[in-house]
Write a protein that binds this DNA or RNA. Structure first.
Lengths: 207, 207
DNA sequence: ATATAATTTAATCAAATGGTTAAATCGGAC
DNA sequence: GTCCGATTTAACCATTTGATTAAATTATAT
């Protein structure tokens, strides 16, 4: 609808689209210009180098998938509610930004130094997360599972389907994209139940 | 140690190394030649185009991570043993081929058509896997969880740490690679326990 | 030794690509 | 109107890269 985007916005949006689809190496500045509806000269007029443009896009993408963690740990609630909220919100985010995880993961593997710039001042999130799990164990709400394993397990269950989408669609859904959508819609409920059964100690009464 | 590799082997090994490290787009034929210890002319003498060489490497890499699935479903055993064997063997494989998952996933996202060539004649694996889960549900060995979710959950727990390695190392291990190795060594036990608690119905007595 | 295949050397090509430049044009602010 | 930044056009440059070729050299098998 709205076309009132500034040229800078058009460039950033186009760059994100192309970089996410093709990666840093596979992206051509000309294609970004085409997608943005401008020409290459103007593109370089705004962003002198491909590298600068890429880093801007990457940083933004990284923050988008990381900010949910930030928000999750800041809310106070019991562990079971935390699990529910975190998983459902995270998958909901990924549904609307489904290509970001693969993009971020690929570029971090390509150039691991990028992670250093991104993780500055994020250590408090880690501490809060680990503390949350430790507390739940101490309170005997969950089994004594090493926090790093539980946290990576949850992230794996949320994120993996989006990075492995072509495989899942091809292998288990016969290439039917509609089935994949259904599968993703079922995910929050399935993942929450899976994790709860895996770690919660008191799962007596449930709907 | 053995240096008795044929030139063709040297090329394939070099190509795999470079393609896996830098992806199709990031790979230069000259670098493959350098790593193989030959020159570019000879490289093209064996493999006329980059695309052909890439497809050969990719197909091989894909099969390596897929063949475990194949072997797993062909063995007859009770579901609990199947879980144990499958998870421990899969993680063991990934430990020695840790860069393959990210490679395969990235290239499949880049060019989803590749998956079609790879999944030919693999439908029996899918059917066997689903049937295995269905049977376990019917026998009341596990909770009634949709097979596609259980299967992707298990794969997620096994594979994700390897594709997200830089993030996990950077975020939860302060960049300490040794800690990551320890973490990976703990994975089989942790994942098996996690999945068992998540789905097994009779988990009365355990070590 | 000699024919055949493997390998090197070195040069070359065409195309793609990131980046630059200069001049022209357009559009809005004053 | 005029001034100034935004934008276009179009050409250009240097470099990289995939790929090819011809000729020379080496290794190998017969």
């Amino acid at each position: 609808m709205a076309k009132e985007k500034s040229t800078e916005d058009k460039i950033i949006n186009a760059a994100r689209k192309v970089f996410i689809a093709k990666g840093m190496d596979g992206t051509r500045m000309q294609e970004i210009a085409d997608v943005a509806g401008i020409n290459k000269a103007l593109l370089h007029y705004y962003y002198r180098t491909k590298t600068k443009l890429f880093e801007r896009v990457f940083t933004h993408a990284f923050k988008e998938v990381f900010v949910v963690l930030e928000r999750a740990v800041s809310n106070e609630m019991d562990f079971e509610r935390f699990l529910e909220k975190f998983i459902s919100q995270y998958i909901k985010l990924l549904k609307s930004k489904s290509y970001i995880p693969q993009f971020v993961i690929h570029e971090l593997n390509r150039n691991p130094d990028l992670i250093v710039k991104q993780l500055q001042d994020k250590s408090f999130i880690k501490e809060k997360l680990f503390q949350l799990v430790d507390q739940a164990i101490e309170d005997k709400v969950i089994r004594p599972v090493p926090p790093v394993h539980l946290i990576t397990n949850i992230l794996a269950l949320c994120i993996f389907p989006f990075v492995a989408r072509p495989i899942i669609t091809g292998f288990a859904m016969d290439g039917d994209k509609k089935k994949f959508k259904t599968y993703i819609d079922e995910r929050p409920e399935q993942v929450i139940a899976f994790v709860k059964h895996a770690v919660l100690i008191n799962q007596k009464e449930e709907a």
